[in-house]
Simulated assay, not measured.
Amino acid sequence: MLGLELATAARKRNSTLYSVFQPLLQLNTGELAGYEALIRSTTNDTPECLFQFARSAGFLYELDVMSMKRSVSAYFAEMFDKNNSPLLFVNIFPSTLLNPSFSMFVCNEKSDST
């Protein structure tokens, strides 16, 4: 039920979350280094507002993990050569890294992808 509270809150705010990918370039060569995954909303909510709302409602971890999961899934769904795709950089809140559930999330996602 990951993100159930978040999905309910997003519906109440009439918001749909989706990922976009910002190209990251090597400054010295101009070559593509990879992409940064960014979360966006169909409403006028900025990412900052979304995460502040999630923090105040008590589900920052759920939003952060859901954002990561959606971003990784969307990114690799768009890649033609999944074995040779550019690096994907994903932002993570320090509190998410420290959450006891995070290591279990990573292990589950890793086993699902193999």
Rank of each mutant, 00 (worst) to 15 (best):
V65W: 08
E36I: 01
F51K: 04
Y18C: 03
L17I: 03
P94G: 12
F89K: 10
Y18D: 00
K69Y: 06
S113G: 06
R55V: 08
L63T: 04
R11C: 05
V20T: 12
D81W: 02
V90E: 10
Y61S: 07
C107I: 06
F59P: 00
F105A: 06
T29R: 05
T29D: 06
N99C: 14
N108L: 11
E48M: 10
K12W: 00
E36S: 02
V20Y: 07
I39L: 14
D112C: 12
E62W: 01
T114P: 01
N28Q: 15
A54L: 04
T43W: 03
P100Q: 14
Y18R: 03
G34A: 05
F21R: 03
S15W: 00
F89W: 13
L38M: 11
S41N: 05
S85Y: 08
F51H: 05
F80D: 09
Y18I: 00
Q22L: 09
E5Y: 07
G30S: 06
A54P: 05
N83F: 09
T46D: 09
E62V: 04
A74Y: 02
R70L: 13
A74M: 09
A54G: 03
A54N: 02
L60T: 03
N91M: 07
A77K: 13
E109Y: 11
S56P: 00
L50N: 04
S19V: 05
R40H: 10
N28V: 06
L27W: 03
Y35M: 05
M68P: 01
S103P: 00
L50I: 08
T46F: 09
D64I: 04
P23N: 10
A54C: 12
Q26L: 08
E31Y: 03
A74Q: 13
V65P: 06
V90I: 15
Y75I: 00
P94D: 13
F102T: 11
F51N: 02
M104F: 12
P47Y: 03
P86M: 09
L38Q: 07
L50T: 01
F21C: 03
T43H: 05
S111L: 13
L60D: 06
N28K: 13
L6E: 02
N28R: 12
Y35L: 08
S73P: 00
D81P: 00
V20L: 14
F53H: 08
S95H: 11
A54K: 01
N83W: 05
S73C: 06
L60P: 02
N84C: 10
M66F: 14
L25P: 00
D64W: 06
M1G: 15
N44E: 15
L63M: 15
Y61P: 02
D64P: 07
Y35I: 03
P47H: 07
T42A: 08
Q52T: 09
S41M: 09
E5G: 10
K110Y: 14
R11V: 04
V20A: 12
T29S: 15
E109A: 14
F93K: 06
V72E: 07
S113W: 12
